[in-house]
């Protein structure tokens, strides 16, 4: 294979087409590469690919770059790019769609954000409400020893939170009609699968 061919094979239109069909994925086609999202994003300096380049990589079908980029996991949902985008792309929604896609394709342990989001959802669906102290424990239990070591560096933040009752260790209230919530979720998830 010549160098030029090797370069060409990096770009797979089928990959771009696949991503256009995920939830909110079709918006990616609207990107005209103006870069306003990049100057807007508060997390751009930590991203492997800032939003503009991330969208270009998707449009080009650059599977390798897209699959390893941390871009969506750094999105804080601050919504600033979404209100500014001149093409009306709801970038926050596209990022949600990408995170769901990546978690399904690569597994929830492929990124800390994927595991934390899944754990948050599991606790929420089971109880109907969030219980932050339990969420934290569950997350680090699943994340493993390396993550737990990192967590200990956060003890200086956690200690005053517990002392000031900002992180109650006692179980938070649950909702009464958990079955109803679960049924609504299951139906919605089925509808979402049919939808794209």
């Amino acid at each position: 294979m010549t160098a030029a061919n090797k370069q060409a094979s990096r770009y797979d239109p089928a990959f771009a087409n696949e991503l256009y069909t995920i939830e909110n994925g079709h918006y990616i086609k609207q990107c005209m590469q103006c870069g306003l999202c990049v100057v807007t994003c508060p997390a751009r300096h930590l991203m492997d690919l800032p939003p503009r380049r991330y969208f270009k990589a998707i449009q080009a079908g650059d599977q390798e770059q897209v699959l390893k980029a941390n871009t969506p996991w750094l999105c804080t949902s601050c919504n600033l790019c979404t209100v500014r985008c001149p093409r009306g792309i709801p970038i926050i929604d596209v990022m949600h769609g990408m995170k769901l896609y990546l978690a399904q394709k690569q597994g929830v342990k492929s990124a800390p954000g994927a595991l934390f989001s899944k754990t948050f959802f599991d606790v929420m669906l089971k109880r109907g409400r969030q219980w932050e102290a339990w969420l934290t424990q569950m997350y680090f239990l699943k994340a493993g020893p390396a993550a737990m070591k990192e967590a200990f560096k956060m003890m200086d933040v956690a200690r005053p939170m517990v002392l000031k009752k900002r992180l109650p260790l006692a179980p938070a209230k649950t909702i009464k009609n958990k079955g109803q919530l679960k049924k609504i979720y299951e139906k919605a998830a089925a509808l979402a699968r049919e939808g794209h």
């Binding site: 804080t76 769901l100 929830v108 994927a114 959802f121 929420m124 979402a192």
Partner: peptide, 15 residues
């Protein structure tokens, strides 16, 4: 019930 905060859409999608 919980609104989903900024995290649940990452795990189950916006809809």
């Amino acid at each position: 019930n919980c609104c989903g905060a900024t995290l649940v859409a990452n795990a189950i999608g916006d809809f």
